[in-house]
Amino acid sequence: MSEPGDPKPGTVYLVGSGPGDPELLTVKAKRLLERADVVLHDRLPGPAIIDQLPADRCEDVGKRAGGDRTSQPEINERLVELASAGNSVVRLKGGDSFVFGRGGEEAEYLAARDVPFEVVPGVTSATAAPAVAGIPITHRDHASSVSLVTGHEDPDKEESAVDWEALAALGGTIVVLMGVSRLPDYTDALLEAGADPETPVALVERATWPEQRVATGTLETIVAARDEVGIEPPAVTVVGEVAATRDRVLEYLANEPDGEPVEPDTEV
């Protein structure tokens, strides 16, 4: 017998899993994951969440940079196929599926094919990653605006839709998701646009995972700091005066894995 809150047959649930700590799953996301007929996930929710999912009801549709991948059209079609067969389907994404997670594309695709869906927001890494590293993306003394930017645009675009010159002029905080490999490109773009070379920058890798690492520096030094620490995707970049807050709170910050940084921050 179904219970109130059970996932409905033939419905797709676009679920954000948060930054990776299972305790940051919403109550609704956890319930849907436990009761859905099928869960389609990529690797971004992280092993602590993925390893808890029932293997017989899961499909890995992950996309890996430079490697094997399940294309977005294939994922879209699979969602429709599964829902049309009467399954309740969870499409699990890291962070929030509507913040650079292609949730909007999937929602439009489902709606165009008369497939009912429900959006279950998640804790986005755009705010969570800086926060657990001791960095507020807004601060009354340092930043009254935030710009969220993707560092990994659609490769089919003829030119970038990100206006780095405008962002440099705007000030405030810039948060870049999926931008580890292109870090030299956009730091150079901001410098060329007139941003202060001493602007603080932080990179937070695998926020809330046991492997969480942080590199700090400035627009001039952050690429070298990234390489020194060995920061790899997934990571979030924070550009702005707020990034310097970490140094002032780190001694008492309990969010660090096991209470201590995985390895010392490096500022070059």
Rank of each mutant, 00 (worst) to 15 (best):
V38Y: 00
G104L: 07
E220N: 07
N255Y: 13
R57D: 15
G101E: 00
A29G: 09
L219K: 00
I49V: 11
S88R: 00
A243H: 10
V268F: 08
L148H: 11
A189E: 07
P234A: 05
P116Y: 00
I135K: 03
A36W: 00
L203D: 04
A131D: 02
L110A: 02
H142C: 05
V27Y: 08
N87M: 04
R182T: 15
A193Q: 10
R213G: 04
P210H: 11
T70I: 11
V249A: 09
K157G: 02
V229F: 05
R206D: 11
P233G: 11
P234Q: 02
G62V: 01
V90H: 01
P136M: 12
A195E: 11
R78D: 09
L44M: 14
L40F: 10
E81Y: 02
A161V: 04
R206Q: 14
G16C: 03
V132N: 00
V132S: 04
E77F: 05
N255E: 13
L44V: 14
D141F: 05
Y252N: 11
V162L: 07
A166R: 15
V239I: 15
G101H: 01
E106W: 11
P155F: 07
E220G: 06
G240N: 10
E232T: 15
P4F: 06
P197K: 03
L82F: 08
T208Q: 06
R248E: 10
P155I: 01
E159M: 14
N76T: 07
D114N: 15
G86K: 02
G240I: 07
G95I: 08
S181D: 14
A143L: 00
